[in-house]
Amino acid sequence: MPVLRVEGVTRRFGGVTAVKEVSFQVHEAQIKALIGPNGAGKTTLFNLVSAIDRPDDGRILFRNPIRTGDAQIDLARTSPHRASRAGIGRTFQHSQIFEELSVLDNVKVGRHAHGRAGLFSAFLTLPRQRREEAAAEEAARRALQRAGLGDKTEIEADSLPLGERHLLEIARALATEPGLLLLDEPAAGLNNEETERLAETVRRIRDDGVTVLLVEHDMGFVMEVSDEVVVLDYGEKIAEGSPLMIRSNPEVIRAYLGEDYLAEEEPR
């Protein structure tokens, strides 16, 4: 039973078709990568899966594997906060951390849907508010541990270096306890050491049972961590398979790897 089924999804902006009849599946506890040249429609597809944007056509069915009993929902017809509550977690290509909060408070925001204390509890500091605050803090610390930021909880988020900002976004998304984690170019701007640390973290998250779908330009990283790869070109899916198959797919090489991958392989 797949976690995510993207079925015939199309998204047009004006006259441009950014994503055209794309279908693929993501299976449980798998790391799947979405690759393709710039403008291939990867980020558009990500926004569709996280319900920030809606497709013109098609369905995006999601069933959370870690919360059994949850019904399947169509992400093409819901709002981002509902998608999050259903078990979609995501990070952003351009850092979207809350810079005025501490690292720990950033991750506590990720616990939002797990709390119920509303404005009144907050205003009056009711016992429920105190209880939930303590629980949220504990869960946030756990999420930070999982993302490898356990030692950075108290510092201001805006003083984190870029590599750790990515990890913070991952921790924040993990705090929502997602069944499917979407990572939008998590390795962008990282040096080799940071990329290595990220790869380890992502694999560990997968081993914990979280399914991962990621968009990435760093081919070394993609080939290293992914169980399966989907290749988009001009909004259409041109290939899908194991990293090994993708490497040798002539169409993929022509569309994409021809330039980037060969150039990237050398230094690794």
Binding site: I52, P80, H81, S84, Q96, I97, F98, K108, A113, G115
Partner: peptide, 30 residues
């Protein structure tokens, strides 16, 4: 009441959506 707000679930949600509505909603905030 207002002084109590910032370090709570609701208070953080407000600060989060102030900063970026998209990230806030992707974390389950309505």
């Amino acid at each position: 009441m207002a002084l109590n707000l910032p370090r709570t679930r609701t208070g953080r949600a407000l600060i989060a959506l102030h900063r970026t509505e998209i990230a806030a909603s992707s974390l389950g905030i309505d």
